[in-house]
Design a protein around this nucleic acid. Structure first.
Length: 1041
RNA sequence: GGGCGCGUAGCUCAGUUGGCUAGAGCGCUUCCCUUACAAGGAAGAUGUCACAGGUUCGAGUCCUGUCGUGCCCACCA
């Protein structure tokens, strides 16, 4: 391999090669048998809906930085990769594509056929995603790549569902759900996006059945205000606040619902807002005091309906059209014209009907928040529907003991970590948590909440409160906590084809009359079971006993048929013969699939083989850190925490790092539709993977959003791609590093052994080693504290400023002068820089490392052969003894002198090539150090001569005078009087400003008395220094006049 | 309606428990293609730290309020 590098760093030339080497060496592979302490991160599995964007690049770069850092710290490191099937999202994308390309709808296919189409899409995008991650340099153990619907994950889903089902935590409920009429599926509360909508309040008159005397006034109607007139078809009451003065006359009377003709009661309910025209409350300003109640189409109304036992009439079909087929029976002749209309058409038609009939009292414009589907973006319809739910606040019997027992029942030894953490959970439960909980009615709640400690929600919340779970930045803990405290049961069924099909079979049975027990949603009692056996003609339990599959049976009263029950069987896996048997006996499998987040919640342990007690699970669970964006703290993070404990006995990670969301230059989200999306592969093409990674890491502060101006760029191959000039920074840095390495490799041949050099005898050597070790210390601390930008910037400035701008320039001159010592220092510095920078910029550092090995395989105090590959080389540890503040201070004085001389040269228009001579006047304590480093000054400031004198020097004629840090320096034969005057005047101003500031402080009695003595002392020293320098500058100015 | 951010140089952003003459990168000005690097080097200019109060010896940093801006949550009368 040639020791001379290309002049310009070409990422293309090294990235593929380096990547190949890592994979061939198995550098990312994690082996549970490796006894070293483990470090484990699971990837937030990207959705297979689309290729990755810059947000993913950020997310995965940060994970890779942590993983590579820990790997170099010699942990047994696992980064688990994989992708998410993303139920609704993926199905929607594929449906749209097929409709656009083939004009076919989902219903034109058989289920299996359609799922196969989605599967093909998934295969394609999974491949693209993995390729993108590899190009980014992600050091995942690719052999383990999982998918949320693969066999391993599916087994975990089944096991979890069965466990929840048999613990009575999954139930079938009729609830008002967030219905997406476009995709015809239910959405969880957090999948609903609220958007501001310009709407109207329509004031509709409902005639009273009989005119009423209201405090002496004869009224024949009441007026309700609504934003959704179409729901009036399902009204089953009109409510008013009991404290409304009109209530005494009207409650109990009936109104005749227009169009429909239904007679509905006026009821009293505290929920109704009293009208008040000048109220701060917008609702009060718009209220008439009468609220139409539509239990089947509004969550508030649903609650009122529950309180008053109102009928629930659903007037819509699942597609959002008005329908009499889904619960609406009393459709009169007047309402027929509405059937089949879309809900928004119907809204207009109904308003028009009221207008024509003279029953539309008023229309007032109103801006309000309306829930929209996060997938289809159509307004959500609150819809009465049968769905599966997970009870999140229901106490789970014997939960603590089960979690504590998990360690004991698992294989000993290998599961030490699981057992230990489970034990600590139990300990926390019994001691510390006493302050965090309240017990009443036999249930222990988390204090100040309705969350039982031993519920799923409790499992998610308690680790945050007792300190086992930490967020960085910590403010995100608030989101997490508030969300869980207000958590409602989790609807987990989705009316989709793409996903884990719900493993429940159901059948309706008529119960013989002799069964007296009222079946509940818990498991059946013996009497009911016997009856059930008779109903199906056989012994169900015995029949199932023949199979290896576990089953769990529940039943509930039939929702419609008196004397009937509905039975549900859940199987823990699909054993074909057992399935065939129960299906022959009349049970049908539920068509729905599980919410995507159900399988995501299991990701930290499903990927390791749970529920099997695998070596992987024993070694790598629980993991250490999770890196994600704030938008899924609730949807995903909290559910992993709850299911991690419920299933695998411990929280899945202790640290959650939340990074920023990347926006474009105008602060907008990046998206395909806006055309401002950026593909990481395009950035890799335009700037290189390391440049992209460096810039992303340097941007990662504690802020919640970062802006990334997007610009088009033409690549050498002619393609025009979206990228960002922000990545120039990273590219320039890589190029700088490359060239520093290039210079080194051309110059370090014949480097002496470390034992033969004496860094302490040379200020520059001691200085760069002090700076180097300071950088090691700071970068290590920054990475451990998730302060990514600090690590990046510290390395940038150490490498560029300290190492390249100063040390390397000094070394050049010394090497030219025949000194060998700098060669050893240079190779050691580069060695450490490469190690420190590797997690952030893995490709270029690995490439340089291997080339450096060819030139100088031993470098640094350890006097050992450097590791063959950087990816698994050891992380450097700071040598505190090398860090010296006095050394850095002395060197800083030389830097100041050089800068000031350069400045004076520029001001006086001295050509760069022209050497000048100087005389330096230094106090005793500085004279020696300056005298020892005159060569340094001469080379850096381009001096022909530098004489150092102790004590006062008479300022030479025609000289420029410099005063810095108590040292006086005169540049001889500089004759531009105006330039010198201007320079010194400015210098004096600057010094006076500094002195003025300090005088203000020291002149303040309070400061001297109350500030810490060290601070006062420091100010006094600075004051003396500045005053001395100012005196010198003033004297020089005087001499000019 | 509730919660959480942000507002510092023309732009994008740092400023760790209050202790600077307020920083970085890009951009800008002048000079330099000096045998590592022009994706570079040297020197330089640029700020009422949104606004108003308060706490303090001392505020970009802490507190209160105002304005602007963004995100999240919330049952759409």
């Amino acid at each position: 391999m040639a020791s001379e590098l290309e002049k310009v760093y070409d990422p293309k030339a090294v990235e593929a090669e380096v990547s190949q080497q890592w994979l061939q060496a198995g550098a990312f592979n994690a082996e549970p048998s490796d006894g070293r302490e483990k470090y484990c991160i699971v990837i937030p599995p990207p959705n297979v809906t689309a290729a990755l964007h810059l947000g993913h690049a950020l997310n995965n770069t940060l994970q890779d930085v942590l993983v590579r850092f820990k790997r170099m710290c010699q942990f047994n490191t696992l980064w688990m990769p994989g992708t998410d099937h993303a139920g609704i999202a993926t199905q929607t994308v594929v449906e749209k594509r097929i409709l656009a390309e083939e004009g076919k709808r989902r219903t034109d296919f058989e289920r299996d056929e359609f799922v196969a189409r989605i599967q093909a899409w998934k295969d394609d995008y999974e491949q693209r995603i993995i390729t993108q991650l590899k190009w980014m340099g992600c050091s995942c153990d690719w052999r383990r790549t999982r998918f949320t619907m693969d066999a391993t994950c599916a087994a975990a889903v089944r096991a979890t569902f069965f466990k929840l089902f048999s613990d009575g935590l999954i139930y079938r409920g009729k609830r008002l759900v967030n219905w997406d009429v476009a995709t015809q599926t239910v959405l969880a509360d957090d999948e609903v996006e609220h958007e501001e909508v310009q709407g109207n309040f329509w004031y509709l008159r409902y005639p009273l059945e009989h005119p009423a005397d209201v405090g002496g006034l004869l009224v024949d109607h009441v007026t309700v205000a609504t934003t959704r007139p179409e729901t009036m078809l399902g009204d089953t009451a009109v409510a008013m606040n009991p404290s409304d003065p009109r209530a005494q006359y009207l409650v109990g009377r009936n109104v005749r619902l227009p169009i429909v003709g239904r007679l509905i009661p006026i009821i009293a309910d505290e929920h109704v807002v009293l009208p008040k025209a000048d109220s701060d409350d917008e609702k009060a300003r718009f209220s008439t005091g009468f609220l139409k109640v539509t239990p089947a189409h509004d969550p508030d109304d649903y609650a009122i309906g529950q309180r008053h036992g109102l009928e629930m009439i659903n007037v819509m079909a699942p597609d959002g059209s008005i329908s009499d087929k889904h619960g609406w029976a009393d459709v009169g002749a007047d309402a027929q014209f509405l059937l089949g209309m879309d809900r928004f058409e119907a809204r207009e038609a109904i308003v028009e009907w009221f207008r024509t009939e003279g029953l539309l009292e008023e229309v007032r414009p109103y801006v309000h928040q309306v829930g929209h589907s996060y997938r289809s973006h159509v307004p959500i319809e609150p819809y009465l529907s049968d769905q599966w739910y997970v009870a999140v606040k229901k106490p789970i019997a014997n939960l603590e003991s089960r979690i504590a027992n998990l360690g004991a029942t698992a294989d000993s030894g290998a599961t030490a970590s699981v057992g230990a953490t489970a034990a600590s959970f139990a300990a926390v439960q019994s001691t510390d948590n006493a302050q965090l909980t309240d017990t009443h009615d036999g249930i222990t709640y988390i204090r100040g909440t309705d969350v039982p400690v031993n519920s799923l929600a409790g499992l998610a919340l308690m680790p945050l409160l007792d300190g086992r779970l930490k967020f960085t930045p910590d403010r995100y803990a608030n989101n997490y906590r508030a969300w869980i405290e207000n958590l409602r049961d989790w609807p987990i069924s989705r009316q989709l084809w793409w996903g884990h099909q719900i493993p429940v079979w159901s059948q309706d049975c008529e119960l013989p009359a002799d069964v007296k027990a009222t079946p509940t949603d818990r498991g059946p009692d013996a009497q009911v079971c016997a009856a059930l056996d008779r109903a199906i003609g056989g012994n169900f339990g015995q029949a199932m006993g023949k199979f290896a599959v576990r089953h769990y049976l529940t039943l509930q009263a039939h929702p419609e048929k008196q004397g009937w029950i509905r039975t549900y069987i859940c199987l823990d896996h699909d054993e074909p013969d057992a399935v065939a048997m129960i299906e022959r006996a009349g049970w049908k499998r539920d068509c729905d699939v599980l919410d995507t987040w159900f399988s995501s919640a299991l990701w930290p342990f499903s990927t390791l083989g749970w529920p099997e007690k695998t070596p992987d699970l024993a070694k790598y669970y629980p993991g250490d850190a999770l890196v994600t964006a704030r938008e899924i703290i609730t949807l995903w993070v909290s559910r992993m925490v709850m299911m991690g404990q419920y299933c695998a006995g411990d929280i899945p990670f202790s640290d959650v790092f939340i990074h920023a969301m990347i926006q474009d230059g105008e602060g907008r989200k990046m998206s395909k539709s806006l055309g401002n999306g950026v593909d990481p592969l395009d950035v890799i093409d335009s700037h290189g993977a390391d440049a992209m990674r460096y810039t992303l890491v340097a941007m990662t502060t504690q802020t919640q959003d970062v802006r990334m101006p997007v610009a088009e760029m033409k690549l050498p191959d002619g393609r025009v791609v979206n990228t960002s000039p922000k990545f120039d920074n990273g590219r320039n840095f890589c190029n700088k590093l490359w060239n520093a390495a290039r210079f080194l490799m051309m110059n370090i041949q014949g480097q002496p052994a470390w034992a033969d050099i004496h860094p302490n005898e040379n200020l520059a050597d001691a200085w760069i080693l002090s700076r180097l070790n300071g950088a090691i210390r700071d970068v290590t601390l920054a990475l451990e504290g998730y302060r990514f930008n600090e690590a990046a910037e510290r390395l940038y400035h150490f490498t560029w400023n300290d190492f390249c701008d100063w040390y390397l320039e000094i070394a050049k001159a010394r090497i030219n002068a025949g000194q060998a010592a700098p060669k050893a220092i240079l190779s050691h510095c580069l060695d450490v820089i490469l190690r420190l920078l590797h997690p952030i910029a893995p490709f270029i550092t690995e490439a340089i490392w291997q080339r450096l090995n060819d030139v100088a395989s031993v470098r640094g105090p350890a006097d050992e052969q450097a590791e063959r590959m950087l990816v698994t080389a050891a992380w450097p540890y700071a040598n505190g003894g090398a860090i010296s503040e006095p050394t850095e201070k002395r060197f800083a004085l030389l830097q100041d002198l050089v800068s000031q001389v350069r400045n004076a040269r520029t001001q006086h228009n001295v050509p760069p090539s022209q050497k000048v001579a100087v005389i330096i006047e230094a106090p005793d304590n500085l004279a020696a150090v300056i005298a020892e480093n005159t060569d340094l000054l001469k080379s850096l400031a381009n001096l022909s001569e530098a004489k150092v004198q102790r004590g006062a020097v008479e300022p030479p004629a025609n000289s420029a005078a410099i005063a810095v840090g108590g040292v006086r320096l005169y540049i001889l034969d500089i004759i531009d009087r105006d330039a010198e005057l201007a320079r010194l005047t400015k210098q004096a101003d600057l010094l006076r400003r500094g002195i003025g500031g300090i005088e203000g402080k020291l002149g303040n009695a309070g400061f001297v008395a109350k500030a810490p003595p060290a601070v006062v002392q420091k100010e006094r020293e600075r004051m003396a220094q500045l005053r001395a320098d100012l005196a010198a500058v003033e004297k020089s100015l005087e001499a000019l006049k």
